[in-house]
């Protein structure tokens, strides 16, 4: 996953506005508060609730 560290710092969960964590195994950004993972497609984070998936376990 080639997401820029600076980009990650500025992104927030569209639902709770909290910070996101990279989840390399999922090719996604995860919100630990909402337990939602947002996909990264072609290196572009998709921060839409419509395309987010819930996860049960801790972010990878």
């Amino acid at each position: 996953m080639s997401i820029d560290r600076r980009l990650l710092d500025l992104l927030a969960c569209p639902q709770c506005k909290g910070s996101l964590q990279p989840c390399a195994q999922r090719q996604a950004l995860c919100c630990p508060r909402c337990h939602l993972q947002y996909p990264i497609r072609d290196d572009i984070p998709v921060l839409l609730l419509d395309e987010a998936k819930p996860y049960e376990d801790k972010p990878a």
């Binding site: 820029d4 600076r6 980009l7 500025l10 992104l11 927030a12 969960c13 569209p14 639902q15 506005k17 910070s19 996101l20 497609r41 072609d42 290196d43 572009i44 984070p45 998709v46 921060l47 839409l48 609730l49």
Partner: peptide
């Protein structure tokens, strides 16, 4: 966004990032 990212790369604009979201619920801190 893919068109923008490709063109930014061609122009050497490394300070331009792309991100898919909607204006009504922005994924950024206050």
């Amino acid at each position: 966004l893919r068109v923008v990212a490709d063109e930014a790369q061609q122009r050497g604009l490394s300070n331009l990032h792309t991100e898919k979201s909607m204006a009504e619920s922005l994924p950024f801190a206050d």
